[in-house]
């Protein structure tokens, strides 16, 4: 549901990538700002923002409440149940997805914040890591696996981009991988296999 009629373009400089859609769909404006609310606003209208994201390569247009989490939106609105809910407070990493290639925990993200962005979940992460996790047995129950794999993909890009870690080793050593993957808990304790899978893929990338 979207009830706004104000024609102003909302994306300011530095904001999310602009993409074409009727500005009239985008909620009401007041004070020169976009207002989107699930409650009745001062202007007397109840409005919901329409959200456009590219998810696993396909454009999606969604009506969501401002307080809808990105994780719930992916799971319940788009049926992408790869990202998992393990703690809903950024403490386990099972909900990790990639936003424009950068790994985040989707449980602490409001969907509305990611308007215009490109989201990749494990379902869309066609990457050698998926096969490597199986071969190195970097999984047991599999529940943390989607988050582990998305996290590992993001981690390898971060490493390639020269992002440091607190280990500060020369090269992507085992300790570097461990530290850089410490945002993803695995209660089954498949950490050795996860490490081997990532090291294997990283070594192949390096060749």
């Amino acid at each position: 549901m979207s009830g706004g009629t104000d024609p102003q373009q909302a994306d300011g400089p530095g904001g999310p990538r602009d993409h074409a859609r009727p500005a009239a769909d985008r909620g009401s404006h007041r004070n020169g700002v976009l207002l989107a609310s699930g409650v009745t606003s001062n202007s007397g209208r109840t409005v919901l923002p329409e959200l456009r994201m590219k998810v696993n390569g396909s454009p999606e247009s969604l009506d969501v409440e401002p307080w809808a989490g990105l994780l719930d939106t992916l799971r319940d609105k788009l049926g992408l149940t790869g990202p998992k809910k393990g703690c809903e407070q950024g403490a386990c990493g099972a909900c990790t997805v990639l936003v424009d290639g950068v790994r985040i925990v989707s449980c602490l993200a409001l969907a509305v914040q990611y308007d215009g962005r490109e989201i990749t979940t494990v379902e869309g992460a066609d990457h050698p890591l998926r096969e490597a996790f199986v071969r190195h047995d970097g999984l047991q129950c599999g529940y943390c696996t989607p988050g582990q794999i998305c996290s590992a993909i993001g981690m390898l890009s971060e490493y390639a981009a020269g992002m440091p870690s607190s280990v500060a080793a020369e090269g992507l050593t085992d300790d570097e991988i461990r530290e850089r993957m410490s945002g993803n808990l695995c209660r089954c304790g498949a950490y050795n296999g996860i490490l081997d899978a990532i090291a294997d893929v990283a070594a192949r990338d390096a060749r």
Partner: peptide
């Protein structure tokens, strides 16, 4: 390898 490994690693 686990028979269900691919299903787990792809989110299926």
């Amino acid at each position: 390898d686990r028979v269900d490994g691919p299903a787990k690693a792809t989110g299926e």
